[in-house]
């Protein structure tokens, strides 16, 4: 089952839910299927592990990456590239906005409100139930509510990103799927897709999922990882 997501897509979720890995891999996979893709790093709150660190590999694929000025790449300053407003006015086939974590991270979306209100946008909430504060349905709903208030936008779909990085097992992904279905039933929101690392894919029974699975090739790796 292919992921068929087009238009302007905002990736939100609680801090550390895996928004950036999801956004970056969605951009790469969509581009590989021939779509024109733009991605913007709107994470103004996280100092490390941001979209900007996957810039080179994305640009090689032909994804247009919008980042703050290089000079401020390692500043912990809330810099919003002017090009972001431009890409909302003239979106490509798929335009991904990778927001920062929690309600604080999406405040910037309210600043883009004038541009966003004129367009049809999808806002996807990424959930990893193995992260603090989203291990319960109530936790996910609380984060969703806080994000919607700060961003002045509504969440339109859900993404399960259940993982323990290298210690992920098929059971964790199945359990994450069961959990996201419950969140979906409670909220009435559709499950857009779930994620699984390329290492896990051969071990998964895909028939258990009635939604698409986005393969994650980790782009944000530790400096000691063997290449």
């Amino acid at each position: 089952m292919n992921i068929d997501i087009k238009g302007i897509v905002i990736i939100v979720g609680n801090y550390g839910s895996g928004k950036t890995e999801t956004a970056v891999n969605l951009a790469a996979k969509s581009r590989l299927r021939g779509m024109a893709v733009k991605i913007a790093d709107l994470d103004l709150v996280n100092p490390y592990f941001r979209t900007r660190e996957a810039r080179v590999s994305l640009e090689k694929l032909g994804v247009e990456v919008v980042l703050p000025d290089k000079r401020y790449m390692h500043a912990d300053l809330p810099i919003l590239a002017p090009a972001v407003a431009g890409m909302i006015l003239q979106p490509s086939e798929l335009t991904i906005l990778d927001a920062g974590g929690d309600d604080v991270g999406v405040t910037v979306l309210a600043a883009l409100g004038d541009q966003l209100r004129k367009k049809k946008v999808q806002m996807l909430q990424v959930i990893n139930p193995l992260r603090p504060f989203t291990e319960t349905i109530e936790g996910c709903l609380r984060i969703k509510g806080e994000i919607e208030i700060s961003s002045k936008l509504a969440v339109t779909g859900l993404v399960s990103n259940a993982n323990l990085i290298d210690e992920t097992t098929p059971e964790i992904i199945y359990e994450g799927y069961r959990f996201i279905k419950e969140v979906s039933q409670t909220t009435g929101l559709p499950i857009e897709f779930i994620t699984a690392s390329s290492r896990m894919i051969p071990h998964l029974d895909m028939d258990r999922f009635s939604c698409p699975v986005l393969t994650i090739d980790r782009k944000l790796v530790f400096p000691w990882t063997k290449h």
Partner: peptide
């Protein structure tokens, strides 16, 4: 069971 945490969060929880 294990959870996935940032070092900073984990220090707080610890």
């Amino acid at each position: 069971a294990k959870v996935l945490m940032k070092g900073n969060e984990a220090i707080g929880e610890a």
